[in-house]
Amino acid sequence: MSEPRINDRIRVPEVRLVGPKGEQIGVVSVNRALRLAREAGLDLVEVAPRSKPPVAKLMDYGKFKYEAAQKAREARRNQTNAQLKEIRFRLKIDSHDYETKKGHVIRFLKAGDKVKVMIMFRGREQSRPEFGYRLLMKLADELKEYATIEFKPRQDGRNMTMVLAPTRTKAEIRAEAERARREAERAEADAEQAD
């Protein structure tokens, strides 16, 4: 968005003026609006240049720009950057290997990422896809506190895939970690004061 015109850059004969607390002052000449802005120690900022007459507001422009930059930074920080992680299973997987891979899936889900679980079929295994389906549904059932099934298991050539989505978003996980960090710092500061 382009910078709004402020103070002497406003080149229209009159504006609809809004006060610093949002109150409507009315349609006034630009000279009178500038005089009111100087008396209040504020800036005259054109907030709606396309309306007839343009709308201008009395405000502290530096503070306005700072707050807008803070909001934009906060929005970027809270943006979710969920990735799609992939983990592969074999149909004849050993129980220890299964538990290890399940642990990886849990770690990905706790971090807020989606997980694509894939079972690869070889040779005669392709004729029995129901075994793969059962294995994927068993995994989904064991992980229901961490994830929901986004895409049910489906055969795709030699592979069967299923996508699991985390129950909590990355922004929620990040906010919870930040809250826990602040509480730990507060507890540490209280312990130091007690000594």
Rank of each mutant, 00 (worst) to 15 (best):
M1R: 11
E3C: 03
E3H: 10
R5H: 14
I6T: 11
I10E: 07
V12Q: 04
P13E: 12
P13S: 12
E14R: 10
R16T: 07
L17T: 09
G22E: 03
E23S: 06
E23T: 02
V30K: 04
R32S: 10
R32K: 14
L34G: 05
R35P: 00
E39M: 08
A40L: 14
A40M: 10
L42H: 02
L42M: 02
D43E: 06
L44H: 07
V45T: 11
E46C: 07
P49K: 02
P49R: 09
P49M: 09
P53S: 06
P53H: 05
P53R: 06
P54K: 11
L58T: 03
M59E: 13
Y66L: 15
E67V: 14
A69V: 04
A69P: 01
E74A: 12
A75F: 07
R76H: 06
R77M: 10
Q79C: 03
T80H: 11
I87P: 00
L91G: 03
I93S: 02
S95R: 14
H96W: 04
E99A: 07
E99H: 05
T100V: 13
H104A: 08
H104Q: 10
V105C: 09
I106L: 01
R107I: 03
F108I: 01
F108T: 01
K110M: 09
A111E: 13
A111F: 01
A111W: 00
G112N: 10
D113Q: 03
V117N: 00
V117A: 07
M118I: 14
M118S: 05
I119D: 00
M120H: 07
F121E: 06
E125F: 03
Q126M: 12
S127F: 15
E130K: 06
E130D: 14
E130R: 08
R134L: 09
L135I: 01
L136W: 00
L139W: 05
A140P: 05
A140W: 03
L143K: 03
K144L: 04
E145N: 07
Y146L: 00
T148V: 14
E150T: 04
F151L: 10
R154C: 07
D156S: 12
T161P: 01
V163R: 10
A165C: 05
P166S: 11
P166Y: 13
P166I: 06
R168W: 08
A171R: 14
E172S: 12
R181Q: 15
R181S: 04
E183A: 15
R186P: 03
E188W: 11
E188I: 00
A189K: 11
A191Q: 12
A191F: 12
E192L: 15
Q193R: 15
